[in-house]
Each structure stands twice: as C-alpha cells, then as structure tokens.
Design a binder for these strands. Structure first.
Length: 488
RNA sequence: GGCCUCAUCGUCUAACGGUUAGGACGCCAGGUUUUCAUCCUGGUAACCGGGGUUCGACUCCCCGUGGGGUCACCA
C-alpha cells in the first residue's frame, strides 16, 4: 500500500511555524516513499472560521514550496480541489459524517445527549471541586428510546456522544512506542455537535479512513485524544493508520510556543525578512537530525534522509539566534541579482526607491553583512545619500588629520587621471589604488582607512574598493572631495 | 489535581553497554584585513538525583525530582 500523509489545518488565517514543520514532515515522508501528500481543511468550527483563510493558507504553502498533491489548490486565485477522495474541505462533507454517525448510533456505540451547556459546566465545576476527573456523567445514556424520539421530534437541541466501551486502549506511536490508557480515563466525547457539524474527533477518523491515510503525523498535543480515535476506528471496524506524534515547539521558557512570547506565524517570519527555504531548513532540524554534522540541507537531501523513527521525543526550543545564523547562510549563497528581487519588496514597504543597478551592487558587497532581507532597508541609506558623520573618524588610528587629508588628496588626484574602465570591476579599482599606494611608497592603512570612511561615512563598512565600485566614479569623487574639505 | 509524556553543553542535537561524551548556534580569544562582515584556528560549556542489572552504564529497569501536554458542542 502506498504511503498517504496529510496535513490538516484549521483555517484560522495563519500558518503556525509548528504547523509548517508538521506539514513538512508529512511532505517529506510522502515524497520519499513516492506517496501522496494531502491537504485537508478542517473547518468544522464555524465560530473560528475566517473567510479567505484557505486562500492565504494556500499562498503560504506556495511560498514555502509545500503544495499538496491532493486537496485544495489555487487556480487563478480561485480555490479548486484535486483528488479522488474529496471533497477535502470538511464543511462540504456533512452528509458523510451524518451517515457514519447513524452507523454508530444504530450499533449502540453512540447515544443522543440533550444536556445543556449550563448543566455540563456545573457538572465540571463540581468534579473539579471534588478533585475528580472531569467527564460527562452519562446522564442521557439512560434515556429510553421513546423519550429520545419524543424530544428529538420536539426539536430539542442535542448532540451525539461516543459511548466509550470498557477496557484499555493502546496504540503504537512510530516515534514514541506503545501508549496505553484505561478507557475509564476517556470521556464520552461529543461526535456531532448541536449544529450538525462533527467534532474534530469524529471528522478526523472518518476522513483519514475514507482518504486512505496511512500515516497520521501531527503534534504531540494530540496524544491524549488519540485513544478516542483508536476506539472509533475499532467501533467502525477499520484498521487505524500509523500514528506519529511530533514533539512540541517551545518558547525559550520551555512552554508551548505561543503568540504571547513572539511571532509564531510563518507569515510573520517571511515579513521579517527570513527566506522560506531557511525557515524550512530550520524547522526541519527541530526534532529531527539525520546524523552527521551537516546543518544546511536542500529539500532533496531532506527527502532522502528523512526518517520518522528518528524524530525526537522531547520538545525543541525555537532558537531565533540559530535561525538568524541559518538565514544569513542562505542570504550569502544568493547571487546579487537574486537578492535584488528578494529585497525589493522590503524597500517598497519602507518607501525607499533605489536604482536597480546600484541596488545590485549594494547586494553584491553587503550580503555577507545581511542576516535578514530587511537589513537592506538601513544598508541602502549610506549609498543613496552621504550619511552625517564625525570628521574625526576620517583619521586612522595610526595617523593624524594632516596625513589623512594628504592621502585623500592623493587618491582623488590619482583616480581623476586613471581610465574610467576601472569602475567596471572591484578588482580593477583595487589594482589601481594599490598600485598607486605602492608606487608612492605609502602604507595601506594610511590611505585605505580615510578613503573608505570618506566613501561610507562610517567607522565600519565594506572596503574602499567595493564602495568606490558601487558608488561609481562621480559619486566617489564627490565624496572624496567633501571629505578633503572637512579636514581642511 | 487525574491521565499521558519527556529529561545530554544556555539552545538545536550525536552517542543506540566500553568515546578524552562529538557537531552546530551563541559567547570568548586569536589569525587574515584599512574597519566591519565573511573566512580560518582555538576556547567556554552537558550526561537531573537515587537505587538496581552488568565485568562495565549517558545508554537497560525501578523510584524520586523537574518540565511539558491534555482534561470543550476548539482544532
């Protein structure tokens, strides 16, 4: 049987980085096994549903390159569904759940419950005070068939509950091994809500079975409800899929990664200038390690190396510092031309316009200093206009103002006479200026330091050759002239 | 609190009974360089505690401690 995995987000409007990792692992396993990776929309909670959320979710998957083989996809901005076991949106599958609910009801495996939320709340409070586990007390299980029919006919609000059988339930988690729980710990979970929609527990079991899912890869927070699912599989007479519960992604304080302590949405990270491939690489290694000392992996490598059984069991702190480093690695590997395209949107949102040719040169000489794409916004300033600076920094630590001025004059005079073609390449600018230094018997520091500061206006910056090349002859001469004036 | 679950440097992790406990991020120091970044070299830093099992435990078992998850007509 071929592998079929699925990622099943609720459409609340954003993709959590934990969800990104879950989606990734589902994707990796499917790709590696030549299987199918399915996306299913779990929108059974009408209160949390956000219009347009599926579209933005799909756009996000497109950006991180994790588009599904089956399920909803965006075609010219419209959501369409692909695959033979659809629909892939749970709100479009209501008759399917109703039919399966009927089967459980007929088999005596589920029962109708009329209890009000007020009664349930009161019950829960009492149980908490008495330090008992909070479970439904099966108040409606004893209702006679006639009474149920009569109240149903009267249009009374009701839900369908699972009648949890006696005994123990266990399952083998691919990552954690056997997990067993006594059924007395399992609540008579609501299967169909009073609005006719299924709960997650009902829908996930029915859909995973009907969609022929072989591996359920999801977050650790689902472990405690998995017995409910296993019980349902058994009651339906189906084989359960393999379960793999991923370790949680944690805040620095080890609690479950939450919005309160920083950004958690993939969208936020992309907006902060992280590259999708860096983010994917980073989360791939949160809870999984292919052995070996490699840190940077291509998607192809991840696909071939991925191994569910090697996924870790304990939670992983989402360490921004390491993400920053990794993103910097990816930025450095981009060509200047690629960076121009990536960086442009950030300049646009910052309201800055930079000539394309100049921007490409800036990217070429600044990329080793960029950790995130947003860094470009500040970097660009010193190239577009000369920044204000203290004239004192024009003087090298081993020289004085007069020496600095003399060397700036020397460089200016030299550059004004050389062939313009040297501005075509950094190396040619370098050869020219170094040739001048050597010919005059000067030292690098005395000449290069003031030249560099004259061109950048900063104590720390790229080198003078790169700067001159990026700024072009006119701007270079103008800045040198200005610095000479300031040291007069 | 009940239940489930987890436990190696600050963080991500390797080790699957025998290693000076390895790598990466971070941090620190040095080198290269006109400065910064990159790059290179080195350093700092960990097996939660206690019992077992074993010739031998980070590795296996038990207990404790600590952390986390979950206990909805949310997923």
């Amino acid at each position: 049987m071929s592998v079929r995995t699925r990622f099943a987000p609720s459409p609340t409007g954003f993709l959590h980085v934990g969800g990104l990792r879950t989606a990734l692992y589902n994707y990796l396993l499917a790709r590696q096994q030549s299987g199918t990776y399915i996306l299913r929309v779990e929108d059974t909670d009408r209160e949390r549903f956000v219009p347009g959320a599926v579209e933005s979710l799909l756009r996000m998957f497109e950006r991180v390159n994790l588009l599904p083989d089956e399920g909803p996809r965006l075609v010219d901005g419209i959501v369409e569904q692909f695959g033979d076991v659809g629909p892939y949106v749970q709100s479009e599958r209501l008759p399917i759940y109703a039919e399966h609910a009927r089967r459980l009801l007929d088999a005596g495996a589920a029962y109708v419950c009329f209890c009000s939320s007020e009664r349930l709340d009161g019950l829960r409070k009492q149980q908490e005070i008495a330090k008992l586990s909070t479970k439904y007390d099966r108040h409606c299980l004893g209702l006679s068939g006639e009474e149920v029919l009569r109240r149903l006919a009267g249009g009374e609000s009701h839900v369908l509950r699972l009648r949890v059988p006696e005994g123990k339930t266990s399952f083998d988690d691919v990552i954690r091994g056997n997990i067993t729980i006594d059924n007395s710990e399992v609540d008579d979970q609501v299967l169909i809500k009073s609005d006719g929609f299924p709960t997650y527990h009902m829908a996930v079991v029915v859909d995973d079975h009907l969609m022929k899912i072989t591996h359920v890869i999801r977050g650790e927070e689902w472990i405690s409800s998995t017995p409910k699912h296993v019980i349902l599989y058994r009651l339906f007479g189906w084989d359960a899929p393999l379960f793999a519960h991923l370790p949680l992604l944690l805040n620095a304080d080890k609690s479950k990664l939450s919005k309160r302590q920083g950004d958690v949405a993939v969208e936020d990270y992309l907006a902060k200038g992280y590259l999708p491939e860096a983010l994917v690489n980073f989360v791939a290694l949160l809870g999984f390690n292919p052995k070996g000392d490699q840190e940077i992996y291509t998607m192809e490598e991840l696909i071939s190396l991925f191994d569910l059984s090697k996924v870790n069991v304990s939670g992983a702190v989402f360490d921004q510092a390491k993400l920053n480093w990794m993103n910097g690695q990816y930025v450095m590997k981009k060509t200047a031309a690629e960076l121009v395209v990536l960086v442009r949107p950030f300049l646009d949102t910052a309201g800055k316009t930079v000539d394309a040719a100049l921007l490409q040169k800036i990217c070429a000489i600044e990329k080793t200093r960029m950790e995130r794409l947003t860094d470009i916004v500040e970097i660009v300033d010193a190239y577009v206009s000369m920044p204000a600076f203290d004239s004192a920094i024009l003087v090298w630590k081993k020289a004085d103002a007069a020496d600095s001025r003399a060397n700036l004059v020397g460089v200016r005079d030299h550059l004004s006479t050389v062939d313009e073609s040297i501005w075509n390449e950094i190396a040619m600018v370098e050869t020219s200026i170094k040739g001048y230094i050597e010919a005059k018997g000067l030292s690098n520091g005395n000449v290069l330091w003031p030249t560099r500061v004259a061109l950048s206006g900063r104590a720390a910056s790229p080198g003078p050759f790169e700067l001159a090349w990026a700024l072009g002859k006119d701007e270079t001469m103008r800045r040198l002239e200005s610095a000479i004036t300031r040291l007069a």
